[in-house]
Amino acid sequence: MENYIEDRKFEKETFATQPLLKAEYYNCTFTGCDFTNADLYNVVFLECVFITSNLSMARLTKTAFRDVKFRECKMLGLRFEDCSLFGFEVNFDRCILNHSSFHQIKIKGTAFTNCQLQEVDFTGTDLTNALFDQCDLKGAIFERTVLDKADFRTSFNFSINPESNRIKKAKFSLYGVTGLLDKYDIQIDR
């Protein structure tokens, strides 16, 4: 890649209409930026932080996120499986990721903190050691998902079938155990 941009702060820029330069961004911060429907094809983000930015419906074909943090971002309908998966490492804090997809990718150890993950597709995803702290997982799809040692103790509204997912040593609260029994259509009184 010809363009290399390092240690730059982008604030309140709109990349939905003015495309982001195809480059490798290292240690950059994007605050209040709008990437709605932006084409991020082949853009590389290394050790970058996105704060209060909107990335909804951005196209992520061959986009690289390596040690990238998202804080308070709106990220509706993203297809993370389209990203370059070499070195893929992301963490999310207070983000809205509804209707996004992590279909069949490895995101071991990823932290989702205070996130909305409604109707997110985790089919075939490796979430070993992932942390779901205070997350709303209503309608999230877990099918053939590896959840070994994942932590769901403070999250809610999830439905995970233990027979079609790997959940060895995963952590759940007593309250959340009902999300493991949904497939049986039984009534549990509290």
Rank of each mutant, 00 (worst) to 15 (best):
T113L: 13
A16N: 10
F80K: 14
T14I: 03
T31E: 15
C83F: 12
F80S: 10
F152C: 09
G109I: 10
Y25S: 02
T61Y: 08
G87S: 10
S100N: 03
A23D: 04
Y25G: 01
Y184F: 15
T31N: 14
K12H: 08
M75I: 07
E89W: 04
R8L: 13
F35R: 09
C95W: 04
D82A: 15
L137A: 08
L131K: 13
T31D: 13
Y4R: 15
Y4P: 03
N91R: 08
T17L: 12
F142G: 15
S84F: 14
C95P: 02
N161M: 07
R79K: 14
A170Q: 03
S53W: 06
S173C: 06
E6G: 00
C73S: 05
Y175D: 07
E143G: 00
V43C: 13
D34K: 08
D148Y: 01
A64E: 08
T14E: 03
K62M: 05
F50D: 13
S53I: 06
L131N: 13
E6M: 15
A58N: 07
K169D: 11
I96R: 09
T128N: 11
G32V: 09
P162R: 06
T123C: 14
R144F: 09
R71Q: 10
R190V: 04
L60E: 04
V146Y: 01
S84L: 05
A150S: 10
G109S: 09
T52I: 01
L20F: 02
T154Q: 10
Y4F: 14
K169E: 15
K171S: 14
I51T: 08
V49G: 00
T154Y: 15
A23I: 02
L181S: 15
I160S: 03
D133Y: 12
T110Y: 10
Y184A: 01
F50R: 15
C73P: 13
F142N: 12
L181T: 13
F158Y: 15
N161K: 09
S56Y: 06
D34L: 14
A58I: 00
E163S: 11
E143Q: 09
C33L: 12
A38I: 00
S159F: 14
H99Y: 03
K69A: 09
A130M: 08
N27V: 01
L131Y: 06
D82G: 06
L21F: 01
L55A: 00
K12R: 04
I186Q: 04
T52D: 14
T178G: 02
S101C: 11
F102R: 03
I141V: 13
D39K: 07
L137E: 04
V49T: 12
F88D: 11
S53M: 01
E6P: 00
A111P: 05
F65S: 00
A58F: 02
V44R: 15
T110M: 06
T61H: 09
E72T: 05
